[in-house]
Simulated assay, not measured.
Amino acid sequence: MALTYDHPGEQTALDPIRLLDIRDTPLSVDEVFGAVGDAAAGGTALFVGTVRNHDGGQDVDALGYSCHPSAGEELRRVAEKVVADYPVRALAAVHRVGDLRVGDLAVVVAVSCPHRAEAFAACRKLIDDLKHEVPIWKHQRFSDGTEEWVGAC
């Protein structure tokens, strides 16, 4: 069954980008989820990225994120592309910078759309493009004393 978009609620909202931020303070899933509430949305997809205790076969003790001064502008560009490609009712994305410990939230993104399939697809596009296109870098510190920088994340 093909979806039709005759009702205004089936289309992209006039101002769907509700929250975009890069911050050095702890992130809140509730804040991001609350930002994407919309009465016309039948589906909301949320992704939470956390600091895990391993990477590439090594134990991770901690990591730090840093970003280029243009990261906020690039995050907006990525969000605007998602909004252009999907019927987004509301979108939010926040990324942490600074020193984080295992278990800390590193990134939280959410998208609400008229239907669940669109919400899942838009959320996946948002986190994948954020990871690949926004200039945020990860500095991992391993338990054996070694460390590494990971490119745009």
Results as ranks from 00 to 15, higher is better:
residue 3 L to K: 11
residue 4 T to K: 12
residue 4 T to V: 15
residue 6 D to C: 14
residue 6 D to V: 10
residue 9 G to I: 06
residue 11 Q to C: 04
residue 13 A to W: 05
residue 15 D to G: 02
residue 16 P to Q: 06
residue 16 P to M: 06
residue 17 I to K: 02
residue 20 L to M: 06
residue 23 R to L: 13
residue 23 R to H: 03
residue 25 T to W: 07
residue 25 T to V: 15
residue 29 V to Q: 12
residue 29 V to C: 11
residue 30 D to K: 09
residue 31 E to V: 08
residue 32 V to D: 01
residue 34 G to W: 13
residue 34 G to T: 08
residue 34 G to Q: 12
residue 35 A to W: 00
residue 35 A to K: 00
residue 36 V to N: 03
residue 37 G to S: 13
residue 37 G to M: 12
residue 38 D to E: 12
residue 38 D to S: 08
residue 39 A to T: 14
residue 43 G to K: 03
residue 43 G to V: 09
residue 44 T to D: 05
residue 45 A to K: 05
residue 46 L to R: 01
residue 47 F to N: 02
residue 48 V to G: 06
residue 51 V to A: 10
residue 54 H to I: 10
residue 59 D to C: 05
residue 59 D to F: 04
residue 59 D to Y: 01
residue 65 Y to A: 08
residue 65 Y to V: 05
residue 70 S to R: 07
residue 73 E to L: 07
residue 73 E to M: 02
residue 76 R to Y: 01
residue 77 R to G: 03
residue 77 R to S: 03
residue 79 A to F: 02
residue 81 K to P: 00
residue 81 K to I: 06
residue 81 K to C: 04
residue 81 K to R: 15
residue 84 A to M: 10
residue 87 P to T: 05
residue 89 R to A: 02
residue 89 R to E: 01
residue 89 R to T: 00
residue 91 L to M: 11
residue 92 A to W: 01
residue 94 V to H: 00
residue 98 G to V: 10
residue 101 R to L: 15
residue 102 V to K: 06
residue 103 G to N: 05
residue 105 L to V: 11
residue 106 A to V: 11
residue 108 V to W: 09
residue 110 A to D: 09
residue 110 A to W: 07
residue 113 C to L: 05
residue 119 A to S: 15
residue 122 A to I: 12
residue 122 A to C: 13
residue 123 C to P: 03
residue 126 L to Q: 03
residue 128 D to H: 07
residue 129 D to H: 06
residue 130 L to K: 04
residue 133 E to N: 03
residue 134 V to T: 03
residue 140 Q to N: 08
residue 143 S to W: 09
residue 144 D to A: 13
residue 144 D to E: 13
residue 144 D to H: 13
residue 146 T to P: 00
residue 149 W to I: 11
residue 152 A to R: 15
